[in-house]
Simulated assay, not measured.
Amino acid sequence: MSWIVVAPFAAWAAVRLSGFEPDWPWVPMVAYTPYAVCAAALGLVLACVLRRWAAGTVALVSVLAMTPAVLPRALTDGNPDAKGPVLRVLAANLLIGLADTEELMALVTRLRPDVLTLQEFTPDARRRLEAAGLLRALPHAVAHPLNGVGGSAVYARHPLKAEKMIKFGPFGQARAWLTHPDGARVEIVSVHPCAPKRIGRQPCWLAGLEALPRGGGALRVLAGDFNATLDHLPMRDLLAAGYRDAADVMGRGFQATWPQPGSTNSTPRVTIDHVLADSRMAVREFQVLSLKRTDHHPVFAELRLP
């Protein structure tokens, strides 16, 4: 019995740490690695209670192997000595435009973001938000509203210059260059690759993540629904390319962002909405927020530019 509990999570640890990411169903499964660490720990306890020392040893190795990959998310990191202006970033998935307009505008009023990235941004959502005063709060916009899941937008307090939208399958990711009043230029991406929840979607999901900009010395912020956790290989590649996850930096990397409690989705909760900041930026604050009529929590980060 102990091997039945221990063996699957030993295999999980081996694949997660291998540097290789199999296709479906592993891509959706690996998002639950923090749960797998807890399950492996329970397997260790069970093996010890039953005095199954071989199984216990394997369970112990599994726990020790996976813990360094996940535990740092609960620990705060240091920051670079960034002394530039502050950039406040809010990101929200609108669930095909159905999210509560009044509540989102209340978040904009309370948090005073310099940048708002929106995913699943529909023409109707644009009409409602702009009628509610979004352009008064954030007068600059690069918006690509579409019916369904593919719409994306960047709204900002400061001038924006549009970049070519990243698009794979039905999912779009708006891009824009923000010019801060102090002269700094920051590329902003409203992130939303394909959701890898069923077989056949992994190439679209992977392409959407691999197309996210990196390198070249430019300052960038990627914010939105990544459909990926820090256990996914493309996310780890992004971080290695010069980004930091704001939640991870603030020790809040275990705060789940999807699905919101009360939504119709009963999937175990995971962290797939992120603000990734250039590693030269300091992260001063991070929050996971609530928004009615969507299954995603909005996320907010306050950054300081170098």
Rank of each mutant, 00 (worst) to 15 (best):
3 W>F: 00
15 V>W: 04
17 L>N: 06
23 D>G: 07
25 P>C: 14
27 V>F: 04
27 V>C: 12
29 M>A: 09
30 V>P: 05
33 T>M: 01
39 A>R: 02
39 A>C: 01
40 A>K: 11
40 A>R: 08
41 A>D: 00
43 G>P: 15
43 G>V: 15
43 G>D: 02
47 A>R: 04
48 C>A: 04
50 L>G: 10
51 R>M: 05
53 W>F: 11
57 T>L: 11
57 T>W: 09
57 T>K: 07
60 L>T: 10
61 V>T: 01
66 M>D: 08
78 G>L: 14
80 P>A: 02
81 D>R: 11
82 A>R: 04
82 A>P: 01
84 G>Q: 04
90 L>I: 00
91 A>F: 07
92 A>C: 09
92 A>V: 03
97 G>Y: 13
100 D>M: 05
101 T>P: 00
102 E>V: 03
107 L>E: 14
108 V>N: 13
111 L>R: 15
113 P>Q: 15
115 V>I: 10
116 L>G: 10
125 A>N: 08
129 L>T: 07
135 L>N: 09
140 H>P: 06
142 V>R: 02
149 V>G: 07
151 G>A: 00
152 S>T: 08
155 Y>H: 06
157 R>F: 02
161 K>R: 02
165 M>P: 00
171 F>G: 07
172 G>K: 15
175 R>K: 13
177 W>R: 15
179 T>D: 12
181 P>N: 14
181 P>A: 07
184 A>S: 13
194 C>Q: 09
195 A>I: 14
196 P>Y: 14
204 C>N: 12
207 A>D: 07
208 G>S: 14
210 E>I: 06
212 L>K: 07
213 P>N: 03
214 R>E: 11
216 G>T: 03
217 G>M: 10
218 A>H: 12
220 R>P: 08
225 D>R: 05
225 D>K: 14
228 A>T: 06
230 L>R: 02
232 H>V: 03
237 D>K: 08
242 G>K: 01
249 V>A: 09
253 G>E: 12
253 G>I: 13
254 F>T: 10
255 Q>G: 01
258 W>L: 05
262 G>L: 00
266 S>I: 10
268 P>V: 06
274 H>I: 01
278 D>S: 12
278 D>K: 13
291 L>R: 04
292 K>A: 07
293 R>S: 11
295 D>K: 04
301 A>G: 06
301 A>F: 11
303 L>A: 08
306 P>R: 11
